[in-house]
Amino acid sequence: MKYELRLSGTGGQGLILAGIILAEAALLDEKLAIQSQSYGPEARGGASKSEVIIADEVIHFPKVTKPNLLLAMSQEAAAKYSHDLDQDSILITDSLFVKDVPAFGGKVYELPITHSAKEELGKGLFANIVALGALVKLTGIVTEASLVKAVLNRVPKGTEEANKKALTVGMNLIK
């Protein structure tokens, strides 16, 4: 088993952290995982991607070459990082930001990720955790128990309940 994910959007949306959490959840499931990232010199803004490979066997090359899943949380990211999707790939977009969905022949889930974070948690900054909830519910790539544990290991003290709720909000986006 080898599953390749690319989480992309705008610098500042927390996608590098989301990638780290996903990889740590995979380790909790006793799988192997590698996370890598690429970004421009800006601290905020600019297209940003965080890649995660989860596998049962040793992973040599750390970058995604055949994405099973692309999460795109900005229009620029959807355009820039969708070039190697194929008909077996899954694309999840944040419908608040991605209006023009690239055609690649595979499944697309246009989800109100940031919108739900704002509506149900009062803050758009939970969008990365909402997105994790949705993509794990959709793919089952890590167990939900490990995902919750990995999120709680990484988020600031005092925000545990809100983050747990963010995961649930994300999971509920997948019917």
């Binding site: 780290i20 990889a23 380790l27 192997l32 995982a33 590698i34 996370q35 890598s36 990232q37 992973i59 750390p62």
Partner: peptide, 9 residues
Amino acid sequence: EVIGHMREK
């Protein structure tokens, strides 16, 4: 940079 920035087990 590849090895410095990537995260693994």
